[in-house]
Design a protein around this nucleic acid. Structure first.
Length: 860
DNA sequence: TCAATGTGCAA
DNA sequence: TATTGCACATTGA
């Protein structure tokens, strides 16, 4: 009788020749595959893919992974030449083996090997020991001799199934004779020489006739032609030695004689997920159905007083605190339900209550989104642990930091967005807090979170709440003025063109400029093939037609009106007539803040129109708007990181850095630097921090690429350590897969390992820019926290209103002005020491100060 | 109503 | 073929 595949999977065993499998996976898959850190994973990936497929489609009850062991086998001991010509395993395959073993184990597949024996011998012994149907996953012929009515072979790469019938059809003899056959032909891959002059065809005929070697040599006189017979006799010893080597042993030591030992076990999902993450097998992370380890717990409604009693009794050290339901009751009083959990088995639902609030002092409180919580409860909550900020510090490039996303990322289960399970949210927050605290400590970032990011959330909360005063009357007048100017320009445009069109539509503008007026197309837009009409293009076409300057002017006016002035009126609070932005503390890849609704970090400043917009931001009666901005903070940080003596000394001596660079690049003394030379130097200085290319510089400066390259070369020869630093940073990033800022925050840069050159080069620029931009952000954050706590401690009335990356905007009562200026300046110059942080720069920082009745008045 | 696109503002 | 953001208006599904 014969077995079907189904029979085998249900009643029999699936045996894998792991060692040959690994070789096949390594050589059969073309190309390279590595993690972002460059660790080779091609073989691991191939094996995993195949195993997952086998497990999914076959769902075998018994599956065993057999492997060779490192040391010599009895074959090596007997015959020196055995496998002597086989080259050693390639290094990059060798280091993958431990991972393959880990994955096999994690999948619940028993792993069998024995010192001195090859995988083949173990498989033969297994088949001999257990009389069950077997499917051998065997990518080479070494196991063919084991094929029988109950044993099939399968080549997973060629997807080729060989059963007894197929075998006999192909070879014309039974599998038991296979080693006799191979002893005649030899096996070059194992350095086994066959009989010269005997190939597959001849050997096949001989074995078909005689079945065994013994029988062949007993009847050697019947072998013709004579030459063949002589050759066989001459190599008789060799042939029997070959047979001895090829014959599979059936006395290998199996780990157990009990079949149940070889049953497939439940996968170790946690380990498997960890491995997939480490190896960056995103495909498997997505495809493999990991069961969710959702905690089991009780949800209980409880009154605040009862809960307070319970807390006093049990005295837990850590709480998770999540606002669950907010409804607005009588007199607009907020009615808040809290989820509170201090053990993963329980979650309490209770009313927000100030008496309960006191029990949290001196406890560790875990929250999600501290700033939002402060807005909600409008009370102080000292020194909590925010899981949103924590996971941002661990990885600033996540798409979003929603609670369910964090649970999925760090706790590996899916949280239903619906509030169907309130308790689970509370318990999950507690577990997230534990998990993230551990990870953060490992990364050395726990201190930074507690000392800077958490307090900063409170600072931002107070800035958002305070808002900034807007001169509404002024804005309304300005809008009227702009409306009129816009209308005038529209009319002129329509007159000149001859038809009405929408000057805000780039499509229509392009039609008029490039089709109707036949102006030269300078460049194309990014995604469509429409010719671009952006400012850069229009500048170039400025003199080609009178409508070009008009369109530029129209764009500026319309932009300022729609994006700024009208938004101010729309967004200004009806309660305090001030503008309240929202700062996002987890919104950028570098660690900067961002601002939205409205964005107050991109208020125009250039030109008369820019200042006109800034004039709308005014100080309260009796107060001043005070602006403190870091001077050249990014270049100073570059000087610190690179240690370049020239750059450092330029800052130490408080030179104008652009003029200094102009001196270096153009080889002239400071008094000979023209404004044009300074402009060029400024572009170079900025470009360096962004990793600008010679081509980019040439485009920006409208010079030819070769002169741009000469400038850059000159720059690097004058600031040699800057060049060195850039190179070292890129090397580090490629080796480690990430870069770091002063605070120790990491940004991983997968772009570095892209197959696409342009994306890879983007990765280099990110690697250079992120430590600089990110460290500047670190400094500013520390300064804000230190300044805020100073203002609070000294009970000053001054408040921080805005942060614009390297600038702080304060509203300061006149009588505090002098004191606040000197202290704020002092704090910003040395922010880390004010927080007791053990960080310092090798370059002095400089802070420019200005103040006035409006933001527009804050200029040097 | 939504997403994609082009454009432009800031550091 | 210069980094990090946010937001507007248009366009077409």
């Amino acid at each position: 009788m014969s077995f079907t595949l189904q029979d085998i999977l249900e009643k029999g065993a699936l045996l894998i020749d792991g060692s040959s499998f690994i070789y096949r996976a390594y050589y059969a898959i073309p190309g390279y595959l590595t993690t972002s850190k460059g660790f080779p994973t091609k073989a691991i990936f191939g094996i995993t893919q195949m195993l997952l497929k086998i497990l999914k489609e076959g769902n075998p009850k018994i599956i065993v992974w057999f492997m060779d062991e490192k040391g010599p086998t009895f074959r090596h001991l007997k015959y020196e030449e055995y496998k002597a010509t086989r080259p050693g395993m390639p290094e990059d395959l060798k280091i993958q083996i431990p991972y393959i073993k880990k994955i096999v184990s994690a999948l619940g597949i028993p792993l069998v090997s024995a010192e001195g024996y090859e995988a083949d011998d173990l498989i033969a012994t297994f088949i001999k020991t257990f009389d069950i149907p077997v499917l051998m996953i065997a990518p080479d012929k070494d196991l063919f001799s084991l094929i029988s009515e109950r044993v099939l072979a399968y080549d997973p790469i060629r997807e080729n199934l060989i059963d007894l019938n197929t075998f006999q059809k192909k070879y014309g003899f039974s599998p038991q004779s296979f080693c006799h056959f191979r002893a005649l032909t030899g096996d070059p891959s194992d350095n086994i020489k066959g009989v010269p002059g005997i190939g597959e065809k001849t050997a096949q005929t001989l074995i078909q006739t005689f079945h065994t070697l013994e029988n062949l040599y007993e009847n050697i006189s019947r072998v013709t032609p004579l030459k063949l017979r002589e050759s066989l006799l001459k190599y008789k010893e060799q042939v029997f030695q070959n047979f001895d080597l090829m014959k599979l042993r059936i006395d290998a030591p199996l780990p157990s004689q009990d079949l149940s030992y070889y049953y497939r076990k439940e996968p170790n999902y946690r380990e498997l997920k960890r491995l997939f993450k480490e190896l960056e097998f995103r495909k498997f992370l997505k495809e493999f159905s990991f069961p969710e380890e959702i905690p089991t717990f009780q949800t209980m409604e409880i009154s605040p007083s009862e809960l307070k009693e319970l807390i006093l009794r049990e005295n837990p050290t850590t709480f998770a605190l999540f606002p669950e339901k907010i409804s607005t009751g009588l007199f607009n009083l907020k009615d808040i339900t809290l989820l509170i959990s201090f053990t993963p088995e329980k979650c309490y639902l209770t009313k927000f209550d100030s008496a309960l609030w006191n029990t949290f002092t001196n406890k560790e409180v875990i929250v999600y989104d501290y700033k939002a919580l402060l807005h909600l409860i409008e009370r102080n909550l000292e020194d909590p642990f925010d899981v949103k900020l924590a996971s941002y510090l661990l990885n600033p490039t996540l798409k979003n930091y929603e609670f369910s996303q964090l649970v999925f990322e760090h706790l590996d289960y899916t949280l239903n967005e619906k509030t169907s399970d309130k308790g689970l949210k509370g318990v999950s927050l507690l577990l997230l807090g534990r998990e993230l605290k551990e990870k953060l400590t490992e990364e050395g970032l726990f201190h930074w979170l507690k000392k800077v990011e958490m307090p900063l959330s409170r600072v931002l909360y107070s800035m958002e709440k305070k808002g900034i005063k807007i001169d509404l009357e002024y804005v309304r007048n300005l809008i009227r003025e702009y409306d009129q100017k816009i209308k005038e320009i529209e009319n002129k445009l329509f007159d000149l063109v001859g038809t009405r069109f929408n000057p805000r539509s780039s499509q229509e503008v392009a039609k008029i400029l490039f089709e109707k007026l036949k102006l030269p197309k300078i460049k194309k837009t990014q995604k469509s093939s429409q010719p671009s009409t952006d400012a850069e293009v229009l500048e170039e076409l400025y003199d080609h037609h009178p409508i070009v300057p008009l369109i530029l002017r129209y764009r500026t006016l319309y932009k300022f009106k729609s994006t700024y002035l009208e938004v101010f009126l729309r967004e200004v609070s009806s309660i305090d007539k001030r503008l309240h932005t929202e700062f996002n503390q987890t919104g950028t890849a570098t660690g900067r803040l961002s601002s939205q609704k409205p964005n107050l970090q991109n208020i125009p400043v250039k030109g008369e129109e820019g200042l006109a917009i800034r004039r709308a931001f005014i100080a309260e009666e009796g107060c001043y708007i005070l602006s403190l901005d870091y001077s050249q903070i990014e270049l100073r940080i570059l000087a610190h990181f690179s240690g370049d003596e020239n750059l450092i000394s330029a800052f130490e001596r408080d030179f104008d850095i652009h003029t200094h660079t102009a001196c270096e690049v153009f080889g002239v003394s400071p008094d000979k630097v023209t404004s044009e030379m300074r402009r060029v130097a400024k572009v170079i200085n900025f470009g360096i921090a962004y990793g600008m290319s010679p081509y980019g510089l040439s485009k920006e400066l409208r010079i030819d690429p070769s002169s741009a390259e000469a400038y850059i070369k000159k720059y690097f020869s004058r600031y040699p350590k800057v060049k060195e630093y850039i190179e070292k940073t890129i090397e580090f990033a490629k080796a480690q897969g990430y870069v770091q800022t002063l605070s120790g925050r990491k940004r991983f840069i997968p772009e570095l390992f892209s197959q696409t050159k342009s994306i890879r080069e983007l990765g280099y620029r990110i690697a250079v820019n992120t430590p600089i931009q990110g460290s500047a952000a670190d400094l500013m954050k520390a300064a804000m926290v230190a300044l805020f706590s100073f203002l609070e401690r000294e009970k000053l009335k001054s408040s921080i209103l805005l942060q614009v990356h390297d600038e702080l905007l304060l509203e300061v009562p006149e009588n505090e002005l002098e004191r606040v200026i000197s202290l704020a300046q002092e704090i910003m110059i040395n922010p880390f020491s004010h927080l007791g942080l053990d960080l310092c720069l090798s370059v002095a920082l400089k802070v420019n100060v200005s103040y006035g009745k409006s933001w527009a008045d804050c200029k040097a």
